[in-house]
Amino acid sequence: MKPLIIIPAYNEAENLEKLIENIIQNYPQYDYVVINDGSTDTTRKLCVAKGYNLLDLPVNLGLAGAVKSGMKYANFYGYDYVIQIDGDGQHNPAYIVDMLRKMEETDADIVIGSRFKTNKKPFTLRMIGSQILTYAIKLTTGGKYIGDVTSGMRLFNKRMIKRFGYNMHYSPEPDTLAYLLNCGAKIEEVQVEMNERKAGESYLIGFMSFRYMAQMLFSILLFQWVRTRNEV
């Protein structure tokens, strides 16, 4: 069975077409599904007009809900591997083959397409936040260093498809990575290059980020010790 690419898209009509055409023409070895997360722009119309494989959510669920829908889709049709990439075209499908190879070599449950596996993290406010989360994870998981914790490009195996699709607390966020590591899951990183966002708005914007950081730190440092652990 082909690996499945899930592409959560919220108001990404401008960027989506180029990405999907690229996948269809250059990467026929992967199946793909666009998850339209209740967009208010022409995302749905574009996908229907072009005949793209579309999972159309009637209301906006947010990234976690969109990914969950994608995982349920993958489980329903019996896929073994799911690659999550963003709809804005910042992730290049060319790296998927590296990620799949890494998963095979290391028998990992999750492979992250990381900007900072071999490259150094730039010194910006955003990256300082990212580094804090990296250290929080390192601290709580017995020294596991994940460079790019917020990367939206991830490869999941079948076990993870079921978990992310059917459990309440599995958001595609750093705290879930920490929790899964402590459950005994194996997480690896592969160096990838990402393009700058072209148009549209990101899921994580400006003033939301303080709240996001507080939530992640609470979750990683405190809550994960209380959660029931389902060993992998």
Binding site: N167, A214, F218, F223, R227
Partner: peptide, 19 residues
């Protein structure tokens, strides 16, 4: 509150408020 988190019956955001 912690018991609810343990049983995974409350969202993190809500738990943070109550703590």
């Amino acid at each position: 509150v912690l018991l609810r988190i343990h049983k995974l019956k409350i969202k993190m955001e809500d738990a943070i408020f109550w703590i």
